[in-house]
Design a protein around this nucleic acid. Sequence first.
DNA 1: GTCTATAGCTAGATAGAC
DNA 2: GTCTATCTAGCTATAGAC
Lengths: 211, 211
Amino acid sequence: MQLYYLHADYQMNTKTVTAANTKLINTRQQIVEYSADMLRANGFEGFSYLDISRHLGITKASVHHHFPKKVDLGLALCDWTQDWFEQGLSHFDARATSNWNKLERYVRAAMKHSLNEHKLCPISAFYSDLNKLPDSIKERVKALDDYELDWVTAVMQDGIDNDEFAPNQDPRALASLFIFSCKGALYYARLHGKDLFHQTMKQFEHLLKSS
Amino acid sequence: MQLYYLHADYQMNTKTVTAANTKLINTRQQIVEYSADMLRANGFEGFSYLDISRHLGITKASVHHHFPKKVDLGLALCDWTQDWFEQGLSHFDARATSNWNKLERYVRAAMKHSLNEHKLCPISAFYSDLNKLPDSIKERVKALDDYELDWVTAVMQDGIDNDEFAPNQDPRALASLFIFSCKGALYYARLHGKDLFHQTMKQFEHLLKSS
DNA sequence: GTCTATAGCTAGATAGAC
DNA sequence: GTCTATCTAGCTATAGAC
């Protein structure tokens, strides 16, 4: 009886907490996800608490309840990006049929919806207003960049070691060349369309494998 | 005597007009040049008439006298960029010792002060707030991009024709790969320093000449 | 050409009721 | 957790005096 009572109480508490958490998580998540969309389209300074509140049908004050300062939201967006990135990479590492295929899959994921909706890749989206970002966010962005560069470098290294890519090349320089090309192309695609983007990837593949 | 009088009168008018024009041109030019600096650092939405007025020691209203709407200032910045670009290219075309040297000179000019002052190249600076730009400016930016791409393509073509670059490559795809790499690297350099930038250029040169 | 003054709107942020 | 109300500050832009 006492046990049942405790149990019921526990359930109730759990339920209450769960319900509260669910609501909390939902609103919070909706804020983060809409913000991530806006970030990729317009940069961190390109959307406001008013935009978010209108999209979710709540007030600005409610948004501030979840993220008191905008820098808090910015850091949550860094977390979101990191999750997106880690989940993607483990996926590609498991399924890719070759090193080039890994890069292809990565690019395809980063570009998903980007080309049609004039959005940037999640990591480089912060670069739009880089000079105006708080230092705490800059540091996170830098870490995300390094993480990405490390992964691409490892793919290049493996490709060179296994004679998939041409020998005698610096894998890190190749990796940065690849990343810069992709992101530059994505910037251009917003104004010039995707043809040039695909064409550039093809050219890179040719250079990578035959030089 | 009459002649002298007329001459004097003419001089005076000329002087007045010249002085007025000089002042006009100076203020106007100062606005454009400071705006160009800010554009390259923070994007078109990243500076305001208040910033300009403070920098020049005049009021916002005076800035509006020269550029009634901000889109007018934006179009003037497109003109400024076009001038910068055309002057540069004729300079490189005249002095470069090889096609690769042309590209090197172009990159060096575009990067001048950029790397140390965290600025972007003048053409791609508009990309920071691309989705928020008025259509009239977007069109101008697109035209500037095409102009740049045409020039680099011609350099690549000439390099291939003269056996300076590896044969059997699509000069336009090479050109876009080059441009994307440069601009992507410049974005990165704002946060990661210039080493990666120079390293990437070296890698590109290797790929271009030996593939 | 430059100024003062002002308009209307939006930004990020906070206090306190419910 | 959401609301109303409010704050300070910034934004683009205009009217009209000097």
